[in-house]
Design a protein around this nucleic acid. Sequence first.
DNA 1: CGCTTGCTCGTACACCGTACGTCGTACGCC
DNA 2: GGCGTACGACGTACGGTGTACGAGCAAGCG
Lengths: 203, 203
Amino acid sequence: MRKQRQVASDAGLSKQRVVVEAVRLADREGVDGLSMRRLAGALGAGAMSLYHYVASKEELLDAMIDVVFEEIELPIEETDWQSAMRRRAVSARQVLARHPWAIGLLESRTSPGPANLRHHEAVTACLRRAGFPVLMATHANWLLDSYVYGFALQAASLPFDTADELADMAEDVYLPQLPPDEFPYLNESAAALVAAGYDPAEE
Amino acid sequence: MRKQRQVASDAGLSKQRVVVEAVRLADREGVDGLSMRRLAGALGAGAMSLYHYVASKEELLDAMIDVVFEEIELPIEETDWQSAMRRRAVSARQVLARHPWAIGLLESRTSPGPANLRHHEAVTACLRRAGFPVLMATHANWLLDSYVYGFALQAASLPFDTADELADMAEDVYLPQLPPDEFPYLNESAAALVAAGYDPAEE
DNA sequence: CGCTTGCTCGTACACCGTACGTCGTACGCC
DNA sequence: GGCGTACGACGTACGGTGTACGAGCAAGCG
C-alpha cells in the first residue's frame, strides 16, 4: 500500500506537488474536470489528504493562477520599454493559450498571489525607469493588461484554432445562421476573412 | 394548487420568464448561487419543470449571456464612428458592471446568440460606413472588444469599488503584503493612487 | 515504554445537474 | 356529453461535487 503510493506519487505530497498536478489536470481536462477526488486520484492519495496542503478548493485555484503568472516572462531591464512590453504581452498570450482555463479563473479571484505581485512590480519598474510618471505608469499597466486579458478571453471563446478550421466552421455553422439580408456586413466580413486565410495570431 | 402556482408565478412559465429570472438571481446571488432548484423555487415551480423550456443549464447560460448583450447599446447610425464606439464601450462597461457574472461566462460559451450577432453586425456596419476596409473593420472590432472585456475582467477582480474603499483596502490588506524593499515601485504606486483618490472609472 | 504531533483517509452530509416516469388536466373529435 | 391523446409539471433517484469530522497510524521524543 505504502509502496503503491510511492510508485504513483514519487514520495510524499506537498502543496507544490498538489498545485502543479492540479494545473496539469486542468490543462488536460479543463477546469470542470478538476475535482478534489480526481486530483487526489492522480496523486495516488485520498481526497481528504489534499486539505492538509490546501485550505479549500478556492485556495487551490488561487495557487494555480499564481503558477500561471510564474510562467509569464518578466520584462528585462535592459531593453526599451516598448519591446519589453511587447515581449511580456506575447509571453502572456502564449501562457494563457497553454492554460486556457486560467482566463475563466481570473475573474472571481480577487487577491493577487506573490507571482502576480512580482510581475506587476517588474512591469511598473520597467515603465518607471523609462521615465513614465507614477500615475501614467499605473494607467499604462492597467490598459495593457486589459488588452492582453481581453485578447485571451476572445481567443478562448473562438471555436477554431487555425485558418482552415475557420473556413470549415464558417461554412458549416456560421453562414447558415447569418441570413445575408439581416447581417450583410457580417457576411461580408466572414467572406473576407476566409478569403484572406485569417489566422488568429496577430496583435 | 393551481391557484398557488398562479399567485407565485403570475401565469405560466416560458423560456423568457425562466431566463429573465435566472439573470435576476445571478445578479442577486452570483453565478454560483444560481442552481436549477433555486431558480425553480424563485419561479414557484419544481426544478424539473424548467427543462421544458431549457434543454440544459448550458443552454440557460447561453440565453442569459444573450440577454446581457441585448442590454448593450447599439451604435447609432448618425454619429461619427469614434463617439459611436465610445458610447458602445461605455454602455458595455455599465452593463457588465450590472451583471458581473457575465464576464466569467463569456469564456467557455462559444456560439454567439442572436443579440450578440446583431451587436457585432451593427458595430461592423458603423465602421464600414465610416470608410474602414473590411479587414480593418474586423481588426478594429476585435481590438475594441479585447479592451472592453479586459477592462471588465480587471474591474471585476478588483476587491473595491470606490476610492475610499481602496484606501481602506490598501492600508489593511495590500501594504502588509508589500515589503517596501521587495516591491518599491508598487509601494510608490499604491501611495500615489491613494493620494490621488483613484477611482476605477476612467478609460 | 508511553505520549505527542502530524498526515492520511473513510465516512457522512448537503447540494448539484438531470434521466426517467407518473400524474392531472386541457383540448380535439365523435 | 364522453373519451383519447398530448403536454406541462414535477417527485424520485442516481451519480457527481466540496468538505466537516474523527479515527487510524507512523515517527520523534521524553
